[in-house]
Amino acid sequence: MPTFRPATAADLAALLPVIRQFHADEHIAWDESRVRPALEALIGEPYNGRLVLIERDGALAGYFAVGFCFSLEFGGRYGLLDELYVLPAQRGGGVGKRALAEVEAVCRAEGLRCVRLEVSDDNPLAREIYRRSGYAENPRRLMTKWLSGASEG
Rank of each mutant, 00 (worst) to 15 (best):
M1L: 10
M1N: 08
P2W: 10
P2T: 11
T3Q: 10
F4S: 06
R5H: 14
R5E: 11
R5T: 09
A7V: 07
A7L: 05
T8M: 12
D11Y: 07
A13D: 15
A13T: 14
A14F: 01
A14T: 12
P17K: 08
V18K: 02
V18T: 04
Q21D: 15
F22N: 14
H23M: 13
A24Y: 06
A24T: 14
D25A: 13
E26F: 11
W30Q: 06
E32D: 14
V35Y: 02
V35Q: 12
R36K: 11
P37L: 11
P37F: 13
A38W: 10
L39H: 03
L39R: 02
A41Q: 14
L42C: 09
E45C: 04
E45A: 14
P46G: 08
Y47A: 09
N48A: 10
G49M: 01
R50F: 03
L53C: 12
L53I: 13
I54A: 12
R56A: 11
D57A: 15
A61T: 07
A61I: 07
G62L: 07
G62Y: 01
G62S: 10
A65Y: 02
A65Q: 15
V66L: 11
G67C: 08
F68T: 06
F68S: 03
F70H: 06
S71T: 02
L72G: 09
F74H: 13
G75M: 04
G76A: 08
G76I: 03
R77W: 04
R77P: 00
Y78E: 00
Y78V: 00
Y78K: 01
G79W: 01
L80K: 04
L80N: 12
L81I: 07
L81C: 09
E83K: 11
E83I: 01
E83C: 03
Y85R: 11
Y85S: 13
Y85C: 06
Y85M: 08
V86I: 15
V86H: 01
V86G: 04
L87I: 10
P88N: 09
P88R: 08
P88K: 08
A89K: 12
A89E: 15
A89P: 05
Q90F: 13
R91D: 05
G92E: 07
G93Q: 05
K97S: 15
K97E: 15
A99E: 12
A99W: 01
L100A: 07
L100E: 03
L100N: 00
A101D: 10
A101H: 10
V103A: 00
E104W: 03
A105L: 12
V106L: 14
V106F: 09
C107V: 05
C107Q: 03
R108V: 01
R108S: 02
R108G: 04
A109V: 04
E110Y: 09
G111H: 04
G111E: 00
L112A: 07
L112E: 00
V115Q: 02
R116K: 12
L117T: 14
L117K: 05
E118L: 14
E118Q: 11
S120T: 04
S120D: 14
D122W: 13
L125G: 13
R127F: 06
E128Y: 03
E128G: 12
I129Y: 14
Y130I: 01
R131D: 05
R131F: 06
R132Q: 15
R132V: 06
G134K: 03
A136K: 10
P139N: 06
P139D: 15
R140D: 05
R141P: 00
R141C: 02
L142C: 08
M143V: 10
M143N: 06
S148P: 06
A150S: 13
E152C: 05
E152S: 09
G153S: 11
